[in-house]
């Protein structure tokens, strides 16, 4: 784990196998980053990525953030197994629309249980990342 204590100005979440680096740190790198080449068999990692976004929407709509945080997207039967390809595509489309909607009106939804008021800055960063990632 990483630490952020004042006594230790810098911490190593080593990228070596021995270090238990934060899962979110690893996932954002192995799913989102890396040099992309076309494989013979390749699943759309964007689907996986969208699952995490779905989780965010799920969490913000239901007040079980902590519980859902532990279960991740397993709590959603529609996506956990055997989701039909078209159903997933349809879902992706709706999620994208929903995200666009949220980004457009981020200032209005202030009812999040734990961090109301940070929505704007968050969607700002998100927007930024989308731009950066598109390069």
């Amino acid at each position: 784990m990483t630490e952020r204590t004042a006594e230790r100005p810098i911490t190593h979440a080593p990228s070596t196998p021995s270090g238990p680096a934060n899962l979110a740190d690893i996932l954002e790198r192995v799913l989102d980053k890396g040099i992309v080449i076309a494989g013979d068999i390749k699943i759309d990692l964007l689907d996986i990525e969208l699952l995490t976004i779905r989780l965010r929407l799920f969490v913000s709509s239901v007040e079980t953030a902590k519980k859902a945080g532990i279960n991740w997207w397993e709590t959603d039967p529609a996506l956990s197994t055997r989701a039909h390809r078209e159903a997933v595509d349809e879902e992706n489309k709706r999620l994208r629309e929903r995200i666009a909607e949220l980004e457009a009106g981020a200032g209005e939804s202030r009812d999040k249980p734990r961090d109301a008021g940070w929505d704007e800055s968050r969607s700002h960063s998100w927007h930024h990342v989308k731009e950066a990632g598109g390069r």
Partner: peptide
């Protein structure tokens, strides 16, 4: 810039800026 993590993932650390 990477995408900021949701509070669900950051846990007790607070909002990621």
């Amino acid at each position: 810039r990477l995408r900021t993590h949701d509070t669900t993932l950051t846990g007790e650390r607070g909002v990621q800026l």
